[in-house]
Write a protein that binds this DNA or RNA. Structure first.
Lengths: 212, 212
DNA sequence: CCTACCGATCGGTAGG
DNA sequence: CCTACCGATCGGTAGG
């Protein structure tokens, strides 16, 4: 399967690291994040890897399949990034650990944040169940909230209400850095900006969840 | 300009209320909300009004111009929907008035919520300044926060941080009703659901803004 | 991994 | 307001 065709250029990835499939997923995440599913073109993805579209379609049989693989990969790596949630800490601290790990992941990977946020605004992107890939992420959050309620540490709130407020805040912080006009632009990767947001997010979470 | 062509059917809008331009804007908002800018087709918009695409392009010279008109209309009507903000109430109550009016508007007009939320995930949709249409809405929120800070009623927080958390919460509440899987589906127009969200949003806002 | 090709759909224009 | 048409681009396939 090793290619020996002479016309191989592969300008983007110097020294050709990783498998072609992996390179395609990375390029596709970038392209889907920028243009959305409908606006993305397979030609652009293939070009970034230095191959042609039919070769891409040898690895992924359709645009939908490529998109699904990108999304699955994002949530797998997000979940793999989580640690310390099973510990015996206080429910609120465990929830903030989760939120801060989400935040770290999204800040370092804004393409993922864009793709996940778009899931909220795209009605029909998912043919079947919209949680096909995100359910584990959602369940982790919901479980922490439910355990906190059961322990009397949180008020009895519907977990998705808290998720709507706190989860979308993380995504918006990352995605909106350039969306409020040049006068209000900020750097989501900046230390001070992150610290201010993290502390505001913590206070929001406490307001939402603190027992009455 | 009154059309007398015999092939006129106009099945969607019975009794032909409103101008064609107005009908096009309504249909376009629905189509753009569902498919996004790239995924929307002018044929679908025209068909919903009972005309052909070239006739649509007589009213709006391009897809971009149509989209811009939809977005401008949304923010105009959102701003027109606001009342009681100049009153002499406490800063926090004025801010909650604003947020609750946003919430009412978005719940009653989920197509607008979807289009605005997509502005966060679409990087390149706006050629020039991303706040071309939303700046007045953003400024209203920012001003209320700044006045609250000046009055000592709020802690000194960067207004966009509060906007990221509280504004996106409103949009997510409306847009995510069906995005957490059928087991966690909710009705964003329901009285109880709204009441629970509104109270959680208020507590989140207080957590974010309350003086240290 | 490629070239060559397919049908479908797109936004937009010409002209009346 | 229409029909007819334009070039461009799309996802996907054939075949090697």
């Amino acid at each position: 399967m090793a290619s020996v065709s002479p016309g191989q250029l592969s300008p983007p990835a110097a020294t050709r690291t990783g498998s072609t499939r992996e390179e395609l997923l990375i390029a596709a995440e970038r392209v889907f994040a920028r243009h959305g599913f409908a606006g993305a073109s397979l030609d652009e993805v293939a070009e970034q890897v230095g191959i042609r579209r039919p070769s891409l379609l040898h690895h992924f049989r359709s645009k939908r399949e490529l998109y699904d693989a990108v999304e699955r990969r994002i949530f797998e790596e997000l979940n793999a990034h989580l640690t310390g949630l099973e510990a015996e800490g206080a429910p609120f601290e465990r929830l903030m650990t989760l939120l801060n790990q989400w935040l770290t992941f999204m800040v370092e990977r804004p393409t993922a944040a864009r793709i996940i946020l778009r899931n909220s605004s795209d009605l029909i992107s998912r043919p079947a169940d919209p949680v096909e890939f995100s359910w584990r992420t959602v369940e982790t959050f919901v479980r922490l909230v439910e355990e906190g309620i059961a322990a009397g540490a949180f008020r009895p709130i519907k977990p998705v209400v808290a998720l709507n407020i706190l989860g979308s805040a993380v995504l918006s912080f990352v995605c909106n850095a350039d969306q409020f006009g040049h006068r209000r632009r900020y750097d989501a990767t900046g230390r001070a900006e992150r610290a201010e947001f993290e502390s505001a997010l913590r206070r929001a979470a406490w307001g939402v969840l603190a027992p009455a």
